[in-house]
């Protein structure tokens, strides 16, 4: 861990100002990812600005009738919030599928968006990594890439985004509220994270001075037909090999509205709007789900160890859509989706 100074931010505007003035400033909230990375010497901020005392913890009604999640509300408080459980159970299940109770008590909603990849090479400063040291090369391509991406990859990077929560936020079409020197703006969730392209060092599209203040969930009802399915190497406390957030609105057996997003397969939470369109207006049958799944992975590419993810993703999509249609998952349940 490098040498740094520490201050508590006195307000949102002040935080933005301080960040703008010095690019070596990093925000810290829950700390669960940045401190981990600082101990690995991957993140090396010369100054930490502690956001925890900013008034961004509230979870409250949004003006459009949706729900506003404060950036500093913890993942646990968010998952168990009555409104989240009632109206956005998909988010509840996705959050509970991630990390551990301890980490969820620390990690914040804003911080979750900034989680960095778990790529082995990104984490190990003894190996080249374009995300950590631009231009040094990607060790995962041609290396050990079992946990790596199959969609939206580039020759520069095949890392995945590790979040579960973000997969649900993508499916729910959340909006991210951001404060910067030029004032406030909103960012569509699908535009928040980016694909690696030829600049894998950038995970997201925010400007350096921008600060996430809240996440807005739109006023839509996916509370009856949803599923978060997470597949991993052990039952809990492990990152997804593949995860699927599926949400449907049904009219009888006909799909009125569909949302489909995947985790563990790409540099960003992978929402597939084409597949959603394929589902809309169709009967909620396995055949329909298979077509959507095939569409999602049609552009997938395996790199050896991770090639199994293509087939796994396909099957997981079908299963998640089936579960969503059947309405078998409940927000009051502790996430045990893949248990027997």
């Amino acid at each position: 861990m490098n040498s740094f100074t520490y201050t508590r931010a006195s307000g949102v505007e002040a935080a933005v100002r301080e960040k703008a003035a010095d690019n070596a400033v990093k925000f810290i909230a829950g700390g669960t990812n940045i401190l981990d990375l600082m101990k690995e010497n991957v993140e090396r901020p010369s100054r930490l600005l502690d956001l925890n005392h900013l008034p961004l913890k509230a979870i409250e009604a949004a003006p459009d009738g949706g729900l506003r999640l404060g950036a500093l509300a913890t993942n646990a408080d968010t998952a168990w919030h009555p409104e989240v459980q009632k109206r956005y159970p998909l988010l509840n299940q996705a959050i509970l599928a991630g990390a551990s109770p301890q980490l969820r008590n620390m990690a914040t909603n804003g911080g979750n968006l900034f989680q960095r990849t778990r790529c082995y090479y990104f984490y190990d400063t003894a190996t080249p990594c374009n995300k950590r040291e631009p231009g040094s090369g990607c060790s995962a391509i041609g290396g050990y890439n079992r946990i790596h991406a199959i969609l939206g990859t580039s020759e520069q990077c095949i890392a995945t985004h590790p979040s579960d929560m973000c997969v649900a936020l993508a499916a729910l079409k959340a909006t991210v509220r951001v404060s910067g020197q030029n004032g406030e703006r909103t960012v569509k969730f699908e535009n928040f994270h980016r694909l690696p392209g030829d600049a894998p060092e950038f995970d997201h599209t925010l400007a350096p001075d921008e600060l996430v203040t809240a996440i807005d969930l739109p006023n839509e009802d996916f509370s009856q037909h949803f599923s978060y399915l997470k597949l991993r190497d052990r039952q809990s406390y492990a990152f997804a090999l593949v995860s699927v957030a599926a949400a449907l609105q049904l009219d009888g057996n006909t799909i009125k509205e569909a949302r489909l997003a995947l985790g563990g397969v790409a540099h960003k939470p992978w929402r597939d709007q084409q597949a959603e369109e394929l589902l809309k207006g169709q009967p909620a049958t396995e055949d329909t789900f298979r077509k959507a799944a095939a569409a999602v992975v049609s552009s997938a590419r395996g790199y050896g160890h991770n090639t199994f993810k293509i087939e796994l993703a396909k099957r997981a999509i079908v299963r998640a859509l089936k579960q969503a249609a059947e309405g078998t998952q409940h927000a009051s349940d502790i996430f045990t989706n893949s248990n027997p």
């Binding site: 520490y6 829950g30 401190l35 502690d50 301890q102 620390m106």
Partner: peptide, 13 residues
């Protein structure tokens, strides 16, 4: 009252 991992928070925080 809430359980956390003490390795991933700074004492000053």
């Amino acid at each position: 009252g809430k359980r956390i991992n003490s390795c991933l928070t700074l004492a000053v925080m």
